[in-house]
Amino acid sequence: TTYKLIANGKTLKGETTTEAVDAETAERVFKEYAKKNGVDGEWTYDDATKTFTVTE
């Protein structure tokens, strides 16, 4: 399944996707990606669109 991340960070803005077996796995991947890019904010997830959003 393809999951999408929308990053609304102070230093990183944009979108990326990952293939994962479930939302929990995708969330781990995206949180690691955000951490590597210095983004720390509020996370939301929309199951209907398989989209995570992080906003600083």
Rank of each mutant, 00 (worst) to 15 (best):
T53Y: 14
N37R: 10
E19F: 15
F52D: 00
K31C: 05
T1G: 08
G14M: 15
A20F: 05
K50A: 05
T16N: 06
A23Q: 13
T49Y: 04
E42M: 13
A34Y: 04
K10C: 14
A23P: 11
K4Q: 05
F52W: 06
D22M: 03
K10A: 11
T17P: 02
T25M: 11
D46N: 10
K4I: 13
G14Y: 15
A34K: 01
D47W: 08
E27H: 11
V21F: 13
K36C: 10
N37C: 13
K36N: 12
Y45T: 00
T25H: 13
A20L: 03
F52K: 00
G14Q: 12
T1Y: 14
K4V: 10
T2Y: 09
W43L: 03
K10M: 12
W43F: 04
E32M: 09
F30Y: 02
T51E: 03
A26H: 00
E42G: 05
A34P: 00
K10P: 13
N37G: 05
V29P: 00
I6L: 07
K35H: 10
W43C: 01
L12G: 08
D46I: 04
T55W: 11
L12F: 15
A20D: 03
K10H: 12
V54Y: 03
K13R: 12
W43H: 00
T55D: 06
N8S: 09
V54L: 12
D46R: 03
W43N: 00
V29I: 15
K13F: 12
I6S: 04
T2S: 07
K10Y: 11
T17Q: 09
K36H: 09
N8D: 09
A26C: 01
E42P: 04
E42V: 15
A23C: 13
K35M: 13
K13A: 09
K31F: 05
T53H: 08
A26Q: 01
L5P: 01
K4A: 04
T55S: 09
K13N: 10
N37I: 14
T16M: 14
E56D: 10
K4G: 02
G38S: 06
E19P: 04
A20Y: 03
K36W: 08
V54Q: 02
W43G: 00
T2W: 13
A48N: 11
K13I: 12
E42I: 15
W43M: 04
T53C: 07
V29D: 05
E19K: 13
T44C: 09
T11N: 13
K31T: 04
D47A: 14
T1D: 10
T49R: 06
K13M: 12
F52M: 01
T1H: 13
T18F: 12
T18D: 02
L5M: 08
T44G: 06
D40I: 14
K31Q: 07
Y45S: 01
D40V: 14
E15G: 07
K35G: 06
K35T: 09
E42K: 11
A48C: 09
K35W: 11
T17N: 05
F52P: 00
T49N: 07
L5E: 01
T2A: 05
K50T: 03
T44H: 12
E32G: 05
R28P: 02
F30R: 00
A23F: 14
K31R: 15
E24G: 09
T16I: 15
K50Y: 08
A48T: 13
G41P: 02
F30K: 00
K13G: 06
A34L: 09
K36D: 09
